[in-house]
């Protein structure tokens, strides 16, 4: 269930006690990508966006995720602020690399569900410092991965991986990820812009275990160049509660939570 790892848990990984020294950079990232997870997940997301002047804006979202075979479906209901309340956003993601995500948005003022393009992954999500691609499930084969070194971070042993995109038009020139050896969790990730200057740093501030599944419950994306950041906090997480299939439908987008 790559959905959970990528979209909700944001770089969360589950235990995979493979000894890292024998692995290539690609294999480390594939372990991250292919880790086993639950079949479905719900939770509340609070997103706090702070600009360089210290002004904060807060967005609250209820999310549902579910695997459908190798594919996944996700639906988000916006709870606040008031001017976006009852807006919903649905994504169907596919394991097939050649197939783009399908995305729809329901705007209460329009009272209809609109299909929108999934081609704007470089756009920022709700004005935050996360792009849609940052929140998404980037396939390991999209980048060339190299192990730079091993490093102890906060008392945890990590492997530092540099990932260079094969697509030269990609929004980042490279990323560097600190992956924990024992749990395959990405503790930190640096994003470099097209001039190879450091653009953003993602850090993990809290995590929680649900059996074998580890969810990152608090992450922070700091835009170094703009001196602003976004914190995502995840609460009321439930795993494998049996979300009905029809939750991911036009009917529910209109009806709401």
């Amino acid at each position: 269930m790559k959905i959970l790892k990528s979209k909700l848990t944001i770089f969360a990984l589950i235990s995979g006690l493979i000894f890292a020294q024998d692995l290539s950079g690609l294999e480390v990232i594939q372990n991250v990508y292919n880790r086993p997870t639950g079949n479905d997940m719900t939770g509340n997301l609070v997103m706090t966006i702070e600009n360089s002047r210290g002004n904060q804006r807060v967005r609250k979202i209820k999310q549902y995720l579910k695997d459908f075979g190798k594919d996944e479906k996700k639906i988000m209901f916006f709870l606040s602020p008031a001017d976006v309340k009852n807006t919903s956003f649905m994504t169907w993601s596919y394991d097939d690399e050649s197939k783009s995500d399908d995305q729809w948005i329901y705007l209460p003022a329009l009272k209809k569900v609109k299909r929108i393009s999934s081609d704007s992954k470089g756009d920022y999500f709700m004005g935050s410092d996360f792009t849609y691609d940052d929140l998404g499930d980037r396939h390991p084969m999209d980048d060339t991965h190299t192990i730079l070194r091993e490093e102890v971070m906060g008392g945890k042993e990590t492997i530092v991986i540099e990932s260079i995109p094969k697509d030269e038009e990609y929004m980042y020139s490279r990323t560097v990820t600190w992956v924990m050896k024992d749990t395959w969790i990405g503790l930190k990730k640096e994003f470099y812009d097209e001039d190879d200057d450091l653009l953003k740093i993602l850090t993990v501030d809290a995590q929680k275990s649900f059996g074998d599944v580890i969810i990152l419950t608090k992450v922070k994306m700091h835009n170094i160049q703009r001196n602003q950041f976004t914190i995502m906090e995840f609460s009321n997480v439930e795993i494998d509660k049996g979300i009905p299939n029809n939750k991911f439908s036009e009917r529910m987008m209109k009806r709401g939570i």
Binding site: S100, D102, K114, R115, S117, D119
Partner: peptide, 9 residues
Amino acid sequence: FSSELGGVI
């Protein structure tokens, strides 16, 4: 109808 083709709706 509505459909996506190469990033264009």
